Simulated assay, not measured.
Amino acid sequence: MLNIPKLKYTNTQNFFLMAGPCAIEGEDIALRIAEKIITITDKLEIPYIFKGSFKKANRSRKDSFTGIGDEKALKILERIGKEFNVPTVTDIHESTDAAMAAAYVDVLQIPAFLCRQTDLLVAAAETGKFVNVKKGQFLSAGSMKFAVDKIIESGNNNVILTDRGNTFGYQDLIVDYRGIPEMRSFNVPVVMDCTHSLQQPNQASGVTGGKPALIETIAKAAIAVGADGLFIETHDDIKNAKSDAANMLDLTLLEDLLKKLIRVRQSIL
């Protein structure tokens, strides 16, 4: 299990969970969502990491929501970590983001499109924080060994890999579940991103679509083939969410889903 400070239930046989809203939209919303998720994960004894992007840099349109301000959002993540005593994770997009974000969160996440950016990986590694690298939609699972090597060779063994599907045509993604055991062979925890893997990018509107009805399917299959953790973006007011509303899980569905996944996990142990 991950040795992240504040991570509870480290002796459990459950998978761990990274979950939260796509982006930090405001303090009240983030705290409310965090509290609801933590109530569920504590009840089910699932190790939990709160997720929220302090900045959204990869947007289709210039008028898309990008954030409420870097420092303001990072301070909200810091407050959640301290108030609820849980680790937190956020994306970074540039090398200069690494040290800044590391002062507030426990895990730095490398977006899929940036997983080959050597300077970014090295900067994240040098903070000493856990580094979660999302597999590029354009890469094989085996290719992620090079991302792992870059971080470890920079003096940091705290690496997580996350699958989020592979590009299929111009407007869809598919998941090749052979990649989960292949990436686990690198001796790092492997996570399945159950929401971004259901995105439908490059829509004519400039707003990414999604298939959230299949989140349960993606998650069950990932646990069945041995995923160590799951990544799920969730919101309690999806219709008003400012980012990735089309593929997030309604928070009211989370507890029932996790109960089903625990049963899947128990069946393969």
Score class of each variant (00 low, 15 high):
220 K>I: 01
181 P>N: 04
219 A>S: 07
200 Q>A: 14
223 I>T: 07
213 A>N: 15
211 K>D: 13
204 A>E: 10
201 P>R: 13
211 K>I: 13
168 F>C: 08
227 A>W: 08
220 K>G: 04
185 S>G: 07
210 G>F: 02
167 T>E: 15
156 N>I: 05
172 D>Y: 06
182 E>C: 11
207 V>K: 10
210 G>M: 07
209 G>P: 04
209 G>T: 02
167 T>C: 14
217 T>C: 09
221 A>G: 13
156 N>W: 11
185 S>N: 11
181 P>L: 01
194 C>G: 09
171 Q>H: 13
162 T>G: 05
220 K>V: 06
156 N>Y: 13
160 I>V: 13
197 S>T: 04
209 G>W: 00
156 N>K: 06
167 T>Q: 14
169 G>P: 11
170 Y>E: 10
171 Q>C: 14
226 G>S: 12
195 T>K: 06
215 I>Q: 01
163 D>V: 07
185 S>E: 13
202 N>Q: 05
214 L>S: 04
179 G>M: 05
171 Q>S: 15
160 I>C: 06
221 A>I: 11
203 Q>S: 01
210 G>H: 08
172 D>F: 08
192 M>G: 03
164 R>Y: 03
202 N>Y: 13
214 L>P: 02
185 S>H: 10
174 I>L: 14
196 H>E: 08
170 Y>H: 08
205 S>K: 09
189 P>N: 12
219 A>Q: 03
185 S>F: 09
182 E>S: 12
194 C>P: 01
174 I>Q: 10
209 G>C: 02
183 M>V: 01
186 F>M: 03
212 P>L: 06
221 A>W: 05
203 Q>C: 02
175 V>A: 12
205 S>C: 03
207 V>Q: 08
166 N>W: 03
209 G>H: 02
176 D>W: 05
193 D>G: 06
162 T>H: 04
209 G>N: 02
183 M>H: 01
180 I>S: 02
165 G>C: 11
167 T>S: 15
156 N>E: 13
213 A>P: 13
194 C>R: 07
192 M>D: 01
211 K>N: 11
173 L>T: 08
158 N>L: 12
218 I>P: 00
227 A>S: 11
162 T>V: 05
181 P>V: 03
162 T>Q: 07
226 G>E: 07
213 A>V: 14
194 C>W: 05
175 V>D: 12
183 M>P: 00
154 S>M: 11
191 V>W: 00
228 D>K: 10
195 T>C: 03
212 P>W: 02
223 I>C: 07
193 D>C: 07
215 I>L: 00
172 D>A: 03
218 I>T: 10
199 Q>W: 05
202 N>G: 02
163 D>R: 06
161 L>N: 00
203 Q>E: 00
176 D>M: 01
180 I>H: 14
175 V>H: 07
173 L>N: 10
190 V>N: 03
219 A>P: 00
200 Q>I: 13
205 S>W: 07
154 S>F: 11
178 R>I: 04
